[in-house]
Design a protein around this nucleic acid. Structure first.
Lengths: 227, 227
DNA sequence: ACAATAGTGTCTATCAGACAATATCCT
DNA sequence: AGGATATTGTCTGATAGACACTATTGT
């Protein structure tokens, strides 16, 4: 009887998820999870978990979000594997870093505080890995922010941070939050209109000239699945 | 005595490497490895190996190249993790796909055939995953080619496919092979000169006006490490 | 002289970015 | 009317791509 693959010692594999969102005041924030006290440096970390033998990375990442910070139903994307031999003092653990970007109302209950989990918090992202997280999680957050900026550079709203219908100013606010810098309204408009359809409706109730409403262009049944 | 991490069943982790090169006739080719006969579909595959408990992905990838196809000393780059639960019928194996791009003389002996390993061959890359490889290796090759094209889009020769000194035409041939399409010489020149230093020398022996020789710009001690 | 290759001047089309004029609403 | 916001005309500068002319060699 020959030994099977799994009988040989091999690295454990984990996932860590940088769950980003846009706050009410228009900044990128990352969802953090408070670690046990036995670890000295970096009490805050990204939600993560070990990958079980029969699940995909996506499923493990969703499980980490659900168990550690009480969030469900996202679409985490792979960033890269962090594989330094000494990155985790519990043993030989490689981590597949993931990123997701969701509307902030998915992270909050009706009172404005986080739903089920006390040891979770939302914190604005600081530049250049100054977030002071455990392990190599500062680096993961940096990579995650780059990913989000790339995703929004050429498309109106790939992660559906706003609703079906929106004005160009509402869309611009989202882009400015993700990119971390302001847009000029006319430049932004000319960039985006090519990817948008007019609904025919107009915004109401606000002062000033009402804005046209737009929706995302649907090339081939966009309703089927999010990006 | 509590069980350690490694006592729990967890996926095995492998690396697969798409080693690309530019052939003498100016095309991209990938180095393949012939698999054992017991597998029915896709006898050719990318060189790969399981990651041992105390090594990094980079070390494992280099080991795969050395053992499976007899090539040493490259700098494999991570692409992404392939994690479908049923992707390998030997068990639960995730694979971290890698890419590398090296000069063709590193793959050949003096006779023009592959050095130490008989079960290895170099084959031109076909577009759109038509390479007929085992597992999900067609997809890996596709991703690898995209990576190579991105790497050469904005830099003269990030993987050092040609020597220290070269003419613009020699550099152009390399770019045309990687990108798979021709450049106009004047457009190419204006793209590239900003990243090059003139050596002062001229090409010799060929018919026509001698070309100036260039070398890669060295911003801060480029000699220390490749890319 | 002629063939062959290198290098450059210049034209066109496109695009990003910005300013500012005009349009249309609310109070 | 006056304030506020939306929309668009237009100008400028940068850039890619292409054509075609000039430059310099080997034969």
């Amino acid at each position: 009887m020959s030994r099977t693959l799994a009988d040989y010692p091999h690295p454990s594999i984990a996932v860590d998820v940088a769950l980003l969102t846009v706050t009410e005041d228009g900044r990128l924030a990352v969802l953090l999870h408070e670690r046990e006290e036995q670890y000295e440096t970096g009490r805050w970390s990204l939600p993560g978990t070990f990958v079980q033998v029969d699940e995909t990375l996506r499923v493990a990442a969703l499980r980490a979000l659900r168990k550690k910070v009480g969030v469900t139903g996202q679409e985490p994307q792979q960033l890269r594997v962090f594989d330094a031999v000494d990155r985790d003092d519990r043993g030989r653990v490689m981590s597949v870093a993931h990123v997701d970007l969701v509307p902030s109302d998915r992270l909050e209950g009706t009172t404005g505080t986080l739903r089920r989990v006390d040891s979770a918090t939302r914190r604005p992202v600081l530049p250049d890995g100054q977030n002071g997280l455990a392990f190599d999680h500062d680096e993961i957050v940096e990579t995650a922010v780059k990913w989000a900026r790339d995703a929004y550079r050429e498309r109106p709203d790939p992660r559906r941070l706003i609703g079906e219908e929106f004005t160009l100013l509402e869309l611009q606010r989202v882009h400015e939050a993700v990119l971390g810098r302001p847009w000029q309204k006319d430049t932004f408009r000319r960039h985006m209109v090519q990817y948008l359809d007019e609904t025919g409706g107009l915004s109401r109730g606000a002062v000033g000239k009402p804005a046209r409403l737009f929706r995302r262009t649907s090339p081939r049944g966009e309703h089927s699945r999010p990006i």
